[in-house]
Write a protein that binds this DNA or RNA. Structure first.
Lengths: 130, 130
DNA sequence: CATTGACTTAGAGTGAACTTTAAGGTTTAT
DNA sequence: ATAAACCTTAAAGTTCACTCTAAGTCAATG
């Protein structure tokens, strides 16, 4: 069992964000200590890892909440979850390819600017010497 | 010269967004017709392409506005712009690598679910036959 | 020359994902 | 036993990047 503080350290999320995720039903079933403090189980930690994974590949919190709700319903939702992951995977791949194309453009622009910068610096030097 | 409508069609941005970008100083110097309508030049279109490129690789509008402001100041800012592009390029590469790692995790999860789904379906079939 | 549709502005509203605040209760170390 | 640190909740506030609204102007067509 982990306190919210330990979970923050492990995941990089803030306590505020963890509480927010609970409220938004991403991980709604976190246990409580006698004093009412959150206690995260190893299963919770695994779920959180999945949540971070989906979030960091651009899935919206709403969709993640849907996915986690399906997971809580058990094996009868395996197919639905498979389909979600497949679609998500495809959209991530597409976005990465798009990013790569845009990045190539940034690289070309950078190379162009670098050349112009060298020219400009030589020009400045020759102006100084005259 | 292009009307805002034509620019929308070429860039995929809405007229609202183009006006918003003007207000936010991403492309603040768009000309006007006698009647006050926006007229985008070929140079404006090139700048817009750069804006989209930076935006689609995750640069904030604020940073893009800074970059475009430097560009308007001329060659004396070449070095500053080079540095911005270099930094941006590096951060995009990092993000893409991170994305790839997360995507691999999604793929592994998907494969795991697929296997479990096949098992589950066979189980259901044998329950039906009994 | 009137109507339709696209354009103008300033400013308010939206949705996502937090982030902060206020007011208080709990744990831990001394 | 008490102070400091940490936790609780509900609700309001923030930031980003739009997106929409209202009230009016302009251009093209029959």
């Amino acid at each position: 069992m982990y306190t919210i503080r330990e979970v923050c350290e492990k995941t990089g999320l803030t306590a505020h964000t963890l509480r927010y995720y609970e409220k938004e039903k991403l991980l709604p079933s976190v246990g409580r200590s006698a004093g009412g403090f959150r206690q995260y189980s190893d299963e919770d930690m695994e779920k959180l890892a999945m949540i971070c994974c989906l979030k960091n590949t651009g899935m919206s919190l709403q969709e993640i909440a849907q996915f986690m709700a399906l997971a809580r319903e058990g094996d009868s939702t395996l197919q639905a979850r498979c389909e979600m992951l497949k679609k998500h995977r495809e959209s991530v791949l597409e976005r990465m390819e798009e990013m790569q194309r845009y990045l190539d453009k940034v690289t070309r622009k950078y190379d162009f600017y670098s050349k112009r910068l060298i020219e400009y610096e030589q020009q400045q030097k020759s102006l100084q010497n005259s």
